[in-house]
Simulated assay, not measured.
Amino acid sequence: MNKQYQIFISSTYVDLKEERKAIIEAILNSKHIPAGMESFSASNDEQFKYIKKIIG
């Protein structure tokens, strides 16, 4: 059975744009799902709690 993982990418956004693009491409090429805060909607939850809820 092949598993597909959702992988959370945590970094600053603007100054690491090219690096984030490269890692997202590598994750997709590995048949997994990249996830970063820019993919999530706004929330009043504490940030790490919200991340865990989404990628849990």
Rank of each mutant, 00 (worst) to 15 (best):
L28A: 09
N2D: 05
K53W: 06
F8Q: 04
Q6D: 01
E46W: 14
I24W: 10
I51Y: 06
I54L: 14
E38S: 04
E38L: 04
N29R: 12
G56K: 08
L28S: 09
Y13A: 13
K52G: 06
F48D: 00
S43E: 12
M1L: 02
S10G: 02
I54C: 13
T12S: 14
S43I: 14
G56S: 10
K31I: 05
A42L: 10
I23C: 07
P34A: 07
Q6L: 03
E19C: 08
Y5C: 03
E19R: 04
I33F: 12
R20E: 00
S41R: 12
E25Q: 12
E18H: 10
K53V: 05
I24H: 12
K21C: 03
K52S: 10
K53F: 07
T12P: 10
Y5G: 01
N44H: 12
K53Y: 09
N44C: 09
A35D: 01
L16V: 04
M1Q: 02
S30P: 06
A42S: 12
E19G: 09
K3V: 02
F48R: 15
F48P: 06
R20Q: 02
S30F: 12
I51E: 14
L16H: 08
S41F: 11
S43A: 14
I23F: 07
F8M: 08
I33K: 14
S30Q: 11
Y13L: 14
G56N: 09
N2C: 01
K3F: 02
K17S: 09
S41G: 13
P34G: 09
A22R: 15
N29I: 00
Q4D: 05
I24C: 13
F8I: 05
K52Q: 13
S39R: 14
G56T: 07
A42F: 11
Q47R: 15
F40E: 06
I27K: 08
S10H: 01
D45T: 13
E18N: 10
K21E: 04
I54E: 13
M37V: 07
A35T: 03
F40Q: 06
E38I: 04
H32D: 13
I9Y: 00
I54A: 11
K31G: 07
Q4Y: 08
A22L: 15
A42M: 08
V14L: 15
E18V: 04
D45P: 09
A35W: 01
N29Q: 08
D15K: 03
F8T: 04
E19S: 12
I55H: 03
N2L: 03
M1K: 01
K49F: 14
Q4K: 10
M37E: 03
G36W: 01
A42D: 06
K21T: 09
E18D: 07
D15G: 05
I54S: 11
I55E: 12
A42P: 06
I7E: 07
N29S: 03
E18S: 11
K52W: 08
K3I: 06
G36H: 02
D15I: 08
Q6H: 02
A26E: 04
I51S: 07
K52H: 08
A26C: 10
D15P: 07
I7S: 02
N44V: 12
I7F: 01
I9Q: 01
K53C: 02
A26K: 15
F40I: 09
Q47G: 09
Q6N: 05
I55A: 10
M1A: 04
I54V: 14
I7Q: 02
Y5M: 04
